[in-house]
Amino acid sequence: MRSVAPVNQTRAVELDSVTKHYSHGVTALDDVTIGFAAGTFTAVMGPSGSGKSTMLQCAAGLDRPSSGRVIVDGRDLARLGERKLTLLRRDRIGFVFQSFNLLPSLTAEQNVALPLRLAGRRPDRDLVRQSLEAVGLGGRAGHRPTELSGGQQQRIAIARALVTRPAVLFADEPTGALDANTSRDVLRLLRTLVDRQAQTIVMVTHDPVAASYADRVVFLADGRVYGELHDPTAELVSTRMLQLEASC
């Protein structure tokens, strides 16, 4: 059963009138206002060039908007200097990408502990093991990436993103490099993290099947929000995407 967000549930992430201009005259985001409730799973979709990745980057503090506000875990990113913003990203924001970005010389356990070491913290082995258990790979702690399948490597990347107990996990095409069966395994894992641990997840994807695992799908086109879909199915998402692409 999917999580159901109460009407007044706290928002883990808020974008308020966010606009992003680039120097070559392109407006990637145009006055976007949207919120992502804590403990929910949102997929972000849209045609190529719609602003999906730019929205994720601004929401995650990887890029600063030209105007508007971004609030993550109750903190206005515009009020943070670079050092404090870096600390917020490190401690309260998790990232998962299409490429796994694991260090081949390190074991799964060492890869998961890496964010803690980079933060100057002594890794809590129990916490690292709990993160591995959460993604179903507690028995693979001593394996290196070359000894793991693609799906297992992405699970390790997710465990690494979870080890700091982030307020929100941003995923950019997390199943893009995986086959259909492995993709479903990873998507079921993300769904379970939301349902059992109340993890907030915002996922950019082009795949209607991937989007169907979310509680809500937000559609972008030309840098603007063009509606959303709750309790999505792959068929409904596909239909909405065809309509959106035909109108652009």
Rank of each mutant, 00 (worst) to 15 (best):
D16K: 08
A38C: 03
V72M: 00
E82L: 07
P123A: 05
Y226F: 09
V44P: 07
A78F: 08
D179I: 03
G46R: 00
T233V: 07
A157P: 13
A177I: 03
A221M: 10
T164Y: 04
S247T: 15
A5D: 14
T233W: 06
A5I: 12
Q130W: 01
D231N: 13
G74Y: 01
P232E: 01
L102M: 02
G150R: 01
V96I: 06
R117T: 10
Y213N: 00
L127S: 13
M241I: 00
R165V: 09
V18W: 11
R69C: 02
S183W: 07
P123I: 07
A221E: 04
D207Y: 08
D126M: 10
C248R: 13
L127K: 09
I201S: 03
M45D: 09
Q130Y: 02
T205D: 08
Q197V: 12
A198E: 14
H143D: 00
R184H: 11
V13N: 03
T40Q: 11
L77Q: 09
V202C: 10
D63L: 15
A119P: 11
P6V: 04
G46F: 00
G35I: 02
G138W: 06
E228D: 11
V204W: 11
K20F: 00
V96F: 02
L15A: 01
T54I: 06
Q153R: 10
S23W: 09
R89D: 08
F36I: 06
L187V: 11
V18F: 04
P123D: 06
R140W: 15
D63E: 15
G176C: 02
S105L: 07
V163M: 12
G25Q: 09
R75F: 07
E245I: 07
V186H: 09
C248T: 15
R196V: 12
R117I: 15
A78G: 15
A37L: 04
G51L: 00
D30I: 06
N181C: 05
A180L: 10
G139I: 01
S48N: 10
M45G: 03
T239L: 13
V202F: 11
A12P: 07
R121L: 08
S238T: 10
A38D: 04
S238F: 12
A43N: 03
R224M: 05
G25L: 05
M203F: 01
R92D: 08
A113C: 00
I156L: 03
Q57P: 10
R184Q: 13
G74S: 00
G61C: 12
S17E: 15
A167N: 08
E82I: 03
K84Y: 13
Q197H: 07
G49T: 04
G176Y: 03
